[in-house]
């Protein structure tokens, strides 16, 4: 029997890529032959289903499960391609107070028995929905972009996680643009790490393939694109493999200028 790990994907600020990261981490772990369930905890604003391309199969949702309107297995949607991947969608017509942390904790205990990983896609903000997702988690992946607003909110969220005794916190730096970093117009990964002081789990470059994959409803983890490789590496680090970080540095003579401090 599996004793699954609950991982919350959070950020504080909206629009930094939590849902994309959740979808890709869940599908990457499933590609590594893990049994995974991804849960959209953003009640009222359902998103993860469309990014995973499963929006047409929803019958029941998270609120139905905690309220006992259906059995857990009836609400879980199996992925189109990956046999080990499931989605528990959020409710579209309810509000954040429809679920409380105790109900989430009970649901996690049930899921831990059947799944290797439970990925919680956390809503933006630090209201009840945030605590619903964060409190039952064993570890947290904080998603940020190299922007002042996102980093400030990430710092706030890291503080909240630590105050709730969630000490396994990793940082995912999303939407890195090497051209801007080279010009000195974007903070680099080292800057972000120095500011936030938590260990890195991955760096995902800003790339059109991420937009295309969301359009298609097909997560790109494990595919040929650079973000696809980056997400797959993140998944391998999650399962405990020691994987080197992708070299996103510019090549050739530009690299010489980049290294010059």
């Amino acid at each position: 029997m599996a004793q699954g790990e609950v991982i919350v994907v959070t950020s504080g600020k909206g629009g930094v890529g939590k849902t994309t990261a959740s979808a890709n981490i869940a599908s990457g772990l499933a590609k590594l032959d893990k049994k995974v369930v991804a849960i959209d905890t953003d009640i009222g604003l359902r998103n993860l289903d469309v990014v995973m391309g499963l929006e047409n199969r929803i019958v029941y949702n998270l609120v139905d499960v905690v309220e006992g309107n259906c059995r857990l297995k009836q609400a879980l949607i199996r992925d189109k391609h990956l046999p080990g991947l499931f989605l528990l969608p959020s409710a579209q017509t309810r509000d954040k107070s429809s679920v409380n942390p105790e109900q989430m904790a009970k649901l996690m205990e049930e899921l831990r028995c059947d799944y290797d990983y439970i990925i919680l896609d956390c809503p933006a903000g630090i209201e009840q929905g945030f605590f619903n997702a964060v409190l039952p988690a064993d570890r947290a992946i904080v998603v940020t972009t190299p922007e002042v607003s996102a980093i400030r909110d990430a710092d706030r969220v890291i503080g909240l996680l630590q105050s709730r005794d969630i000490t396994a916190i990793h940082l995912l730096v999303n939407r890195i643009r090497m051209d801007l970093i080279r010009k000195g117009d974007m903070m680099n990964v080292e800057d972000v790490l120095e500011l936030l002081g938590v260990p890195l789990i991955g760096v995902v470059p800003d790339d059109e393939s991420v937009v295309i994959s969301a359009n298609q409803g097909e997560p790109l983890a494990g595919g040929d694109t650079i973000p696809g490789q980056a997400y797959f590496n993140i998944c391998r680090r999650i399962i405990g493999e020691d994987v080197a970080f992708l070299d996103l540095k510019p090549r050739g003579f530009l690299r010489f200028f980049h290294r010059k401090k």
Partner: peptide, 10 residues
Amino acid sequence: TSSQLAKDRL
């Protein structure tokens, strides 16, 4: 640079 400024402000 603007990135240095951002880092200092943060």
